[in-house]
Design a protein around this nucleic acid. Structure first.
Length: 790
DNA sequence: GGTGACTGCCC
DNA sequence: ATTCTGC
DNA sequence: GCAGAATGGGCAGTCACC
């Protein structure tokens, strides 16, 4: 630790110079750089191709204007292409909206106004397309039918990473997927999974069990470098993947035998092996699997980089599932049209996107969707992939609201409703009775289970929590009224105090066991608060209005005290009503309110899209309301990814005036603009010290120490949602609990308090006071002081 | 059998 | 979870 | 406004190690 600190402060000059290259790499390249890069890629590609001989038919015809007129002549001079492309410079607008390949004849439609995403102008899209087409950049190529080389995927990753333009990212992604469809369609699923960086659908529960530590160990061993070296490189470069790649390319090339080319299949297979390695010696086993992969990675190129990033779970491509869905839909529809020598029209591309997004949101499993896509085509996809009890759908989310008036603005003249936002765990409960006689549509999903009944519960992120809540699943039968044979409910599961008949804090709910739970042994009882019904008796309800879904929910279920309730709702539309309902929700130990449209098409359940239709109000969102503290910056952590070369997070403390100590209270890493981060870095670098002051009270152990310590100088105003008793932080230790300090839930930076010295920071006594006040409100020791100032 | 580091997943 | 940012 | 990527506290589970 000391060595790192010293490096950081002893030679700030050379250090920051050294950082430049790495930093540059992470910053969005300028347009010119992009163009240059593309050119490079293209040239090298051409070379490879020539050596590879023919393969001509493998080249993507869509890159040219017409398949036949392949301008295989290396010069991708824009002029050459311009006749075809420039024909529709700017006014051609919507024709090309969404169309990756559509320089040709998209039927000019009149639906301009109905196009979604007006934010991205058609003209902009047009330009991007023109650039891509005229650039004529090639993309990875391999023999038909042979395994997809991992290098091909990495090449696309690299292109994707090196542009900030979303349309270009989409384009590169879609091109690769098309190539896979054309050459090795049976590996499409693997490729898509690796792009999303998942091994399987979320509900399968496959975990790598690999984190930073093991990864560093593996890189060190694999490249023959010291672990500390890797760590300090990591601190400077801010990306373990880059560290691995550099380490590997610098590796003295002792062994001559060139490793066999990595394939997508092998990488995926090794990831799976890493995931299932468990028990004694598992860590060594995982490390050695990683080492094998790294050893097979080419020294040139980016294979090692992306392998490591994948294992770390941070691809940092600026590309994720949502964009991949779009790219996949475009790739498939283009591929389908290609078979009959046609190009997809704009309308077709849009329809495909809508279909795939819709299907994926209701059945988020590429394992099911991709085979169905290939076998039945995208326009038949809905028939084969439908919402189905037993498979979680993506939950609808909500946006934070900064003022209650914002709610009124958004929902002006609309009918809406407010519901309690319970502080628990989002749960999607699926049920099919064992005796159900409803004929469920045969879909691509295995329906055997349905025949035997279904009782499952899924988390917000589609993890299967059925093992955690046998106490809930065992009583589903008792919730339903006669005639209900199947359902999917959207709920919040909250800890429940049976004696006091009130909800328990989130922290208590979290102490429940997650595996091998036996109903009789459950310590933390729970109550389920249902707020939406997505599926009933064989029928999806997501297209219905909320009012209708709620009506069906109310009429299909029985409330059971302390076990199953409907979320408390209020349909009043006046500001005062909302305000007092919000106050009430907080007195009832809730986080605040959810606000939802009740009627109209916008009140349908749209998984993870158009989330603007739901709003959430919490008191700490509202400006000037909620708890804020003025805290002293005593330490910091080096930033990663886009925060490379500045501090990415900071350690804060409150002041204990009785003991004259600074007691740590939380880390903080959000609320900073990029500019503010740079300013903090500059300002704080002057206050770096070798070791913590003796009057700093912080957890012992390497794990909890920041990368650098500071003199107590800067004071920041920080906002928080809640205070918690902490096993790690020391604020107000002894004032509320003899062993535990207090920490903050959801801390975020508000602003610098130049006007305050460190000793004017929030005092430990004040922290304790705030904690007690919160307890008295949420804990329901009614009447102490529940006056909020709004 | 206990502890601490690490990981994944809740928020 | 919260927040910021480029498109 | 979307989609993505920075980052927070803190719990149970797993494994290494004593």
């Amino acid at each position: 630790m000391a060595s790192i600190e010293e490096e950081a402060k002893s030679e700030p000059e050379s250090e920051s110079e050294a950082l430049k290259p790495a930093k540059r790499r992470r910053r969005p390249p300028k347009a010119a750089e992009v163009a240059e890069d593309m050119q490079k890629v293209k040239i090298s590609e051409k070379e490879t191709k020539n050596t590879k001989a023919k393969k001509k038919e493998n080249e993507n015809p869509d890159l040219e204007e017409k398949p036949k007129k392949s301008k295989s002549s290396p010069k991708k001079s824009p002029k050459k292409v311009s006749p075809v492309v420039k024909a529709e410079p700017i006014e051609e607008k919507k024709n090309d909206d969404e169309a990756p390949v559509s320089d040709s004849e998209s039927p000019s439609s009149s639906e301009e106004s109905s196009l979604k995403k007006p934010a991205i102008t058609a003209a902009a899209r047009k330009q991007v397309q023109a650039k891509l087409v005229s650039g004529g950049h090639s993309y990875p190529d391999w023999p038909t039918g042979s395994p997809v080389p991992y290098a091909a995927l990495c090449k696309s990753f690299s292109l994707i990473e090196n542009t900030t333009k979303r349309l270009e990212k989409l384009q590169h992604t879609s091109l690769l997927l098309r190539q896979v469809l054309r050459l090795t369609p049976n590996e499409l699923l693997l490729v898509v999974h690796l792009m999303c960086n998942k091994l399987a659908a979320d509900f399968e529960g496959i975990e790598l069990g690999i984190g930073e530590s093991l990864l560093i160990k593996a890189i060190a061993e694999s490249c023959g470098r010291a672990i500390d070296k890797i760590k300090s490189d990591h601190n400077q470069i801010g990306d373990l993947g880059v560290v691995a790649q550099q380490s590997r390319s610098n590796q003295s090339t002792l062994m001559f035998h060139k490793p066999k080319q990595l394939t997508v299949a092998r990488v995926h297979d090794t990831f799976l092996k890493i995931a299932i390695t468990s028990g004694g010696g598992a860590q060594n086993g995982k490390v050695s699997l990683i080492k094998q992969l790294l050893a097979s990675a080419a020294k040139e190129g980016d294979e090692a980089k992306y392998i490591v990033r994948a294992l770390e779970g941070k691809m940092r491509l600026g590309l994720a599932e949502r964009t991949i869905e779009v790219a996949l839909s475009q790739a498939v529809v283009t591929w389908e049209q290609e078979k009959s020598d046609k190009k997809p029209s704009l309308a077709q591309l849009q329809e495909a996107e809508e279909i795939l997004k819709g299907v994926y949101s209701e059945l988020p499993s590429f394992e099911v969707i991709i085979p169905a896509l290939i076998e039945h085509g995208i326009y038949n996809l809905r028939q084969y992939c439908r919402m189905q009890p037993g498979v979680p759908l993506k939950p609808m989310l909500a946006k934070p609201t900064k003022a209650i008036t914002e709610v009124l603005d958004k929902f002006e003249n609309k009918t809406f409703t407010c519901e309690y936002k319970y502080d628990g765990e989002r749960s999607q409960i699926h049920f099919v009775s064992k005796t159900s006689k409803i004929d469920y549509p045969k879909t691509a999903v295995d329906t055997n289970k349905i025949d035997k009944g279904v009782a499952k519960i899924f988390s917000r992120n589609s993890e299967d929590l059925s093992k955690k809540y046998p106490d809930i699943l065992g009583v589903l039968d008792s919730w339903i009224k006669p005639g209900v044979e199947s359902f999917i409910l959207d709920c919040e599961t909250v800890g429940w105090d049976k004696e006091e008949k009130k909800v328990l804090p989130f922290q208590q709910l979290m102490t429940r066991k997650k595996k091998d739970v036996i109903v009789e042994d459950v310590k933390v009882k729970v109550c389920v608060f249902a707020f939406d019904l997505l599926f009933l008796n064989g029928k999806p309800l997501v297209k219905e209005t909320l009012q209708e879904r709620r009506r069906l929910m109310y009429e299909s279920f029985n409330e059971i005290e302390g076990q199953f309730s409907f979320a408390k709702a209020m349909d009043g539309n006046e500001l005062e009503q909302i305000q007092s309902f919000l106050d009430e929700s907080i007195k009832d130990s809730c986080e605040g309110l959810m606000v939802k449209m009740l009627l109209g098409s916008e009140s349908s359940y749209e998984p993870s899209v158009r989330s603007i239709n739901w709003l959430k109000i919490k008191k700490d969102y509202l400006a000037g309301v909620g708890d804020s503290l003025d805290l002293v910056v005593v330490g910091a952590y080096f930033g990663r990814g886009k925060r490379t070369s500045v501090y990415g997070a900071f350690l804060l403390a409150c002041y204990n005036s009785s003991k004259q100590t600074y007691e740590t209270i939380c880390n903080i890493g959000t609320g900073f603009s990029e500019q503010v981060l740079e300013e903090h870095y500059k300002a704080l670098s002057e206050h770096v010290i070798d070791r913590p002051k003796p009057y700093y009270s912080h957890s012992t152990g390497n794990t909890h120490a920041p990368d650098v310590w500071f003199e107590p100088k800067m004071v920041w105003e920080v906002k928080t949602a809640d205070m918690t008793l902490s096993p790690k932080y020391r604020a107000a230790e002894g004032l509320v609990d003899s062993n535990k300090g207090i920490s903050l839930r959801f801390p975020r930076f508000l602003r610098i308090r130049d006007d305050k010295g460190p000793e004017q920071a929030t005092n430990a006594r004040q922290v304790a006071e705030m904690y007690r006040k919160q307890e008295s409100v949420g804990g329901g020791k009614k009447g102490v002081d529940d006056d909020f100032e709004y």
